[in-house]
Design a protein around this nucleic acid. Structure first.
Ligand code: MN
Ligand code: MN
Ligand code: ZN
Ligand code: ZN
Lengths: 172, 172
DNA sequence: CCCATGTTGATAACGATTCTCAATATCACG
DNA sequence: CGTGATATTGAGAATCGTTATCAACATGGG
């Protein structure tokens, strides 16, 4: 049925994330030097905060959090840094239905799709090899060569469904 | 493997579309009267043009086309009319990766997903029952009850691939 | 034909993101 | 350490697609 993975700030140890953060900073540093770029205080803060938050972080959320550490970082810098992270393969941008871009740490187990709760916003990740195969097959049957795809399932999570049922019972 | 369907202005006879258009206008008329709304010259033009274009029409494209018939129709009216169409089930809004909303005529065989060529923009529709089932299953295995989903496959269509291969050969 | 009410067009406002540009930080070099 | 070339920053303007505002204008039942 496909394995699921860490999905947000609630899962994945803080220690793990600090570790990820360190690795990411090192990798970013190397990447920057390779092309004669400089590193900066704000980039460090942004990267650390990004990993500290974990999950699928919306840009404005990251800005807010970063500003609790350094009140004068601009949104522009956050956007710029996030773009850098995605260019050097440390973060991946995601655009769900709400129209704002979120970034998530890029893991080695790169590809996965998302289940999104329309009630509480919870995001669960999943991989399903069988679905991917079928996608390839459908595409090929139409003469297409797929090189990326987007699969998002929207619905209510168990928690939200229980909550709803509760209020419905109470009302009747 | 799933059946594919009409996908754009290139397919589906003009006659069919004019027919669709008539039906849609009638349906819209009824829908409007039911709730004490009025009908207007511009709504008619917009609906007719929408069906004449067929496929997945971007709002600005529709605006442009409508204006060749009546130069003073405002974008606001086009947006408003499209929203009406989707409210009364005549059209369906779609948001692909390029960030602009497109509308497509709602057919009886309502649900389908999309294959999108990143080369020429061609959009092919498909339905795959097996994929839908697997989606349900994955969702349920995570405690979710899905009520909508988005599946988009991005790649190159046969035409575009051939074109590419051609230029590559020519170069070498 | 009239008038209450729905519709329109122009344009301002919007939210997310990117751009501009002058001020500032970084770093390789002496 | 300076110094200077160059990358980075912050603030705000600009952009893009879309929605909101509101006065002028149609529509259609009476
Ligand atoms: Mn994810
Ligand atoms: Mn379609
Ligand atoms: Zn939920
Ligand atoms: Zn193509």
């Amino acid at each position: 049925m496909g394995r699921s993975r860490r999905t947000g700030p609630a899962e994945g140890g803080q220690a793990d994330r600090r570790e990820e953060s360190k690795l990411a900073l090192a990798r970013l540093g190397a990447w920057l030097e390779e092309r004669g770029l400089k590193h900066s205080r704000q980039r460090d803060v942004i990267v650390e905060t990004f990993f500290a938050m974990g999950g699928h972080v919306p840009v404005d959320g990251l800005v807010a959090r970063v500003r609790t550490l350094d009140a004068r970082v601009s949104v522009a810098t956050v956007y710029r840094t996030l773009k850098l992270l995605s260019e050097c393969g440390i973060a991946v941008p995601r655009r769900f239905e709400d129209g704002q871009t979120r970034y998530e740490p890029a893991t080695d187990r790169s590809h996965h799709d998302h289940l999104i709760c329309t009630g509480c916003g919870r995001i669960v990740e999943f991989e399903n090899e069988r679905i991917e195969e079928l996608q390839q097959r459908v595409a090929r049957s139409h003469g297409f060569e797929v090189d990326s795809h987007k699969l998002e399932l929207y619905g209510r999570c168990d928690r939200c469904r229980r909550a709803e049922a509760g209020t419905k019972d109470a009302r009747s």
